[in-house]
Amino acid sequence: MRRRRNSLAGLLFLLPDFIGVLFFALLPFFQAVVRSFQSAVTARWVGLKNYRDVLGNSAFRLAAGNTMKFTAVCIPLLVLLSLAAAVCIQRVRLGKAALKGAFLLPMAVPAASVVLVWKVLFHSNGLINGSLQRFGMEKIAWMSSDAAFWVLVISYLWKNLGYDMILWLAGLAGISPEIYEAARVDGAGEWKCFTKITLPNLKPSLYTITVLSFLNSFKVFREAWLVAGDYPHQSMYLLQHLYNNWFRELSFDRIAATAVLNGGVVFLLILFLQRAWDTEV
């Protein structure tokens, strides 16, 4: 009985939000799905034509490829780095808060603010190249070669390191010290402790962090777009660029199809993650 009432109450709590979500998010999504089977302007039913178009579209392929590449590169990188940082910071006694704050700072910096800096840094005559030159190394054409991809990566890492680090810290904090004590008593070394105790306990955190990192990886588009515009170097070209450009060109059909595909992929990803973590969110 309680459960039922609970469920009703639960529903009620959820409802207002859900309605909004329905309206402003689900409905559009369904519309997109529908549109994915229609032509752009006249809304004639064309079946899977759009999907074929999109899948055959070279821009799409590039963008999709890049996005996946980026995800595949960044997320593990970030996760590991932030973990390392968290572990290090945990041990620190002095200036912990300051350090934490420092690392978290990038998160608060608006993308637009940072863009100027990125521009100065990554310009072919920019600061980084300047330093490289001073050390006798070659200039790197950051924005106009494959190095652009790494610009994205660097930008992403910079922004989210602190964030993920905090997450890790929280996760680490969640592990009760007694276990470590016990382990140390058992004669486990640092490394062993780490691998045998820490990591497993962080598994749930990993899930969250991965999800969040994944979420944040989309946000990198913002910086990219601000720095490089609508048509950046190939290696920087993400799905979102594609969306943006198609939107401008009013190719709604392709957007819709891509969106559906995108949604599908995400869905599958989540399912995979869930299964992998054995969690119910």
């Binding site: 979500v21 998010a25 689900l26 409905l27 559009p28 999504f29 519309q31 997109a32 549109r35 999800v211 994944f214 979420l215 989309f218 588009f221 799905l239 979102q240 969306y243 943006n244 939107f247 709604f252 957007i255 819709a256 891509t258 969106a259 995108n262 949604g263 995400v266 869905f267 990803l269 989540i270 969110v281």
Partner: peptide
Amino acid sequence: MIYLVLMLMPFQVLMLP
């Protein structure tokens, strides 16, 4: 699940609708 998926959707997907 829906919420999660939606959360992970880039804006551009829903931009047009």
